[in-house]
Design a protein around this nucleic acid. Structure first.
Length: 852
RNA sequence: GCCCCUGUGGCGGAAUGGUAGACGCGGCAGACUCAAAAUCUGUUGCUCGCAAGGGCGUGGGGGUUCAAGUCCCUCCAGGGGCACCA
């Protein structure tokens, strides 16, 4: 048995592809295009197996579509701005640019080693001025179009480091480096008006038929359109009114209190003369900014002593609280509480002894006895205790109460969104500078286009906390473009989601002076198949959809949705290991001793933990280099494709990769040392085939049909299984008339089918079969459908839904014959036990169910 | 806390509402070998039975249906996201 020398072969074929420019493509409107894109990586250091799984799937699609004759664009680049580069700069004194470039070089080498069919001439790194200059121009256009604006918003503030922290850097309410209790602080920042497109982003989700349902649902919920009403409550003894938002105006008669956000203007004003309230607001502001912090915090409030006047019932006064669960960003920053029909309001009411009055009667309940205990009633029912609304159902009551509010100018129907505008300012160095200048006289002045790009200075230091751009000695000091006076540059940079919101368009014309050429974008966009992690289901994918709309409205392009097809793949997981001291161990530090017992290098026992997402902190990562050195890129690719369904998590095991390696060799030997002498290529079949040969021939065509279907549907694990079934069938086929021809046919088909999975091995075997062409340039095989259908079918026979026998019958036979054959089965007779059949259900060619 | 997803043999998984366990990993038995590795052959859901043949079985409970891993309700467990990680 020969071993496949993957080391030599993989390098050789990678060279051939590179030298021939096999995967370099041009805009060519005479050809059908297909754009395959994997989410580009952040250059964090090294490629991990999770990246490779993603790119292997993309390569599978790219090579498959290429074989089908498409002009396939398959580019790769680097999402190169971001926080880790600055953390590295602080930790090990290396400049973010240097650190990023080094990482890119390492990771590019790793990608090349995997034999992925990228057009490397299109490589892009977002940290280069050639890239980010275009988004500075885009931002200026957004500003002109009113899509960018400036307002104050809250950030996490570390009072010891005097710096803004990312949510990730806040651990249990404390700064991750300083350990200081994090405060919230108001900062003036830039926002993009994504809410302007809320309805369009929501409605267009329906058109994204090739997106996973769950991603569409998540985006729909994220946008969170809800119809409701604004209502004005008077304030006793004051002239202004309190404007509240509610999605349940039908429960207005069940109100028992009003609550304001700690940042509501009225709360802020009253706090000036109310030390207890001021302290409560301060306490709220010490909490982090993340939604999970707010939502899981204990619900608290302070009665601020004023009385709100019910908009529909003269003289009805309600207490007003400031409460930590009311968000200033949603609705109006003020609510009314109806405890009987909202769980949070109920908890709050119980805590502060407020009345609970039911106004919606659940079906079947008696209005005289119905009461709400510890659980609010959220469903539909009949309105009670509500004056003119009594007797209506919930939707009707909503309409009626809104009519009444509008008639009396006490409110109106309105729509609220959960979606908030996108804050793009970051107080960091390693990002794209925001191209504006702050002038004391002229205010905010955009950087003139002739002065773009605003480049990041190289000479920065990270020894002081805070933004290095801000303490750079000269960079921010400029003359105002309008008045010529002394002015300051904006020192904030863009959120890195800015770069990833249009890179797929840059790939269409990566070397253009413009962001992209219209003719290229018109040809290549939209991305036909986008592949990435489910963790991007909302933010990146929603921002990109928005950004595309904003670019369209600024005249850049004419694309409705950037990603026509989306696939979200699962993560790669691995067991975790700890030594006797509880320290994490890398898998290569653990060895097997005896009956499944694991020990460390010193022979001490190792505790095996759960399968978890591979992460550096738990050391449950496998080195890509080691895998490729031991087994080759194709084996790794095969394993990644075959082990789990692509959307599900994959559990990396040594046994799994070894199994893939065995198959690689088996396939290699099947071709290089064939059991049956191969007929010459293209030799005609004899008129009569031996039955076993005919069976194999049918298996070949069924395999083509099945593998093609599985690839189309992203069931790569099943595609691999079907290829294995084919090679199993070929190995089992005996000699007979036509064996040499069919065996050759089968092998050639198998080699073509593995082309997108294991491209190096496929080229190697294609050559071994005597072909002078590249397999990468060959067309995908087509199944002869007449050969995929068998003459006989196996029909299951059930009695009362329980399988009792199977019968072999001619396809599409008579129902009566099938019924008779089924009833004739001894096992069926036994199960019927002489009882008359009440009903016999026959699903043709499939199943017969006798009901007795 | 809220939104979304997942749950099938010892393990990864397969299965247009129609024969649960394809394909693979692992195990067991055998062949080859001085021996081991590699390779090959057979076998392998659990359970009762000498066998023939039964019974049970897709996280738990309930429902719809001639028929449920698949559809509905509910509970449990694990995972992803929650707006400054990318």
């Amino acid at each position: 048995m020969a071993r496949y020398n993957f080391k030599e072969a993989e390098a050789r074929w990678q060279n051939v592809w590179r030298e021939r420019g096999t995967f370099e493509v041009k805009t060519d409107p005479s050809r059908r295009k297909y754009y395959v894109l994997e989410m580009f990586p952040y250059p964090s250091g090294k490629l991990h197996v999770g990246h490779v799984r993603n790119y292997t799937m993309g390569d599978m699609v790219a090579r498959y579509k290429r074989a089908q004759g498409f002009n396939v664009l398959h580019p790769m680049g680097w999402d190169a701005f971001g926080l880790p580069a600055e953390n590295a700069a602080m930790a090990s004194k290396v400049h973010p640019a240097r650190w990023t470039d080094d990482n890119i070089a390492t990771m590019r080498g790793q990608l090349e080693m995997m034999g992925l069919s990228y057009d490397w001439t299109r490589e892009v790194a977002t940290c280069h001025p050639d890239y980010y200059r275009h988004e500075q121009k885009m931002f200026l256009d957004f500003l002109k179009a009113g899509l960018a604006y400036r307002r104050e918003s809250w950030v996490n503030w570390d009072p010891i480091e005097n710096t803004v922290l990312a949510n990730e850097q806040v651990i249990d309410g404390r700064g991750w480096r300083s350990g200081a209790v994090v405060e919230k602080r108001l900062l003036s920042q830039w926002f993009l008006r994504i809410t302007h497109y809320a309805d369009d982003l929501l409605d267009a989700l329906k058109t994204l038929e090739r997106w996973p349902e769950r991603v569409r649902i998540m985006q729909e919920n994220w946008i969170g359109r809800s119809e409701g009403a604004r209502a004005f409550f008077g304030i006793k003894g004051r002239s202004e009114r309190l404007e509240i938002f509610t999605t349940r105006p039908d429960t207005l008669y069940g109100a028992s209190f009003c609550a304001l956000s700690p940042n509501h203007p009225l709360a802020q004003e009253l706090a000036k003369n109310n030390p207890a309230l001021a302290e409560f607001i301060a306490e709220c502001n010490r909490m982090g900014t993340s939604e999970v912090t707010l939502e899981t915090a204990e619900k608290k409030g302070v009665d601020i002593g004023v009385k709100a006047l019910h908009p529909l019932v003269p003289g009805w006064e309600l207490p007003v609280y400031v409460a930590n669960f009311v968000l200033m960003e949603y609705g109006t920053g003020a609510i009314f509480g109806c405890p009987a029909h909202d769980q949070r309001d109920l908890d709050f009411a119980r805590k502060y002894g407020l009345p609970v009055k039911p106004v919606v009667l659940p079906p079947g309940e008696d209005p005289r006895t119905f009461a709400v205990g510890s659980e609010a009633y959220l469903g539909d029912g009949t309105i009670i205790n509500s004056d003119f609304l009594d007797g209506l159902d919930v939707p009707a009551a909503k309409r009626r109460v809104i009519e009444r509010l509008e008639a009396s100018s006490a409110g109106q129907g309105t729509i609220a969104y959960r979606l908030r505008d996108w804050g793009v300012s970051r107080q960091r160095y390693w990002g794209c500078p925001i191209p504006v200048i702050h002038c004391r006289k002229c205010g905010i002045v955009p950087v003139p286009e002739k002065d773009l790009p605003v480049r990041l200075p190289d000479d920065v230091t990270f020894d002081k906390p805070g933004n290095p751009l801000d303490h750079h000695p000269t960079w921010k000091h400029v003359a105002c473009p309008q008045c010529g006076g002394k002015a300051l540059r904006e020192t904030d940079t863009f959120d890195t989601f800015f770069e990833s919101s249009w890179y797929f368009e840059r790939f269409c014309s990566p070397r253009s002076d413009k962001p992209f050429e219209r003719k290229d974008v018109d040809y290549w966009m939209p991305v036909d198949q986008y592949i990435g992690g489910i963790e991007h289901a909302v933010l990146h994918l929603l921002y990109s959809r928005f950004f595309n709309r904003a670019l369209r409205d600024c005249g850049y392009l004419d694309v409705k949705e950037p990603f026509a097809g989306l696939f979200t793949q699962g993560m790669v997981c691995h067991e975790t290991y700890r030594d006797a001291d509880g320290q994490w161990l890398f898998p290569e530090e653990v060895r097997r001793e005896g009956e499944g017992r694991l020990v460390d290098a010193k022979g001490r026992p190792v505790e095996v933990g759960r399968m978890e997402k591979m992460s550096k902190s738990k050391k449950n990562v496998v080195g890509l280099e080691a895998i490729v050195a031991d087994f080759g890129a194709d084996t790794a690719r095969l394993y990644l494709l075959s082990d789990s369904p692509p959307e599900r998590d994959l559990e990396w095991t040594d046994a799994g990769i070894e199994g893939a390696w065995r198959y690689v060799n088996r396939l290699y030997n099947l071709v290089t040392e064939p059991r049956i002498a191969l007929a010459p290529a293209g030799a005609p079949l004899p008129n009569e085939l031996a039955p076993n040969v005919d069976k194999a021939r049918r298996a070949i065509h069924r395999a083509i049909a099945a593998v093609t279907d599985h690839i189309e549907k992203f069931r790569f694990n099943s595609a691999v299984a079907r290829v294995r079934e084919l090679t199993n069938a070929l190995e089992e086929m005996g000699e007979g008339a036509g064996a040499a021809q069919v065996f050759r046919q089968g092998i050639e088909v198998a080699v073509r089918l593995i082309g997108p999975m294991m491209p190096h091995l496929a080229e190697e075997l294609w050559q071994a079969l005597g072909h002078a062409t590249l397999l990468a340039d060959e067309r995908w095989p087509e199944a002869d459908l007449s050969l995929t259908i068998e003459d006989t079918v196996t029909i299951a026979v059930q009695v009362n839904g329980k399988l009792r026998a199977t019968i072999e019958l001619p396809r599409d036979g008579e129902r009566a014959a099938a019924e008779a054959a089924a009833l004739a089965q001894p096992a069926v007779q036994r199960a019927i036990a002489g009882k008359p059949a009440r009903k016999i259900i026959i699903v043709p060619n499939r199943i017969i169910n006798v009901v007795v």
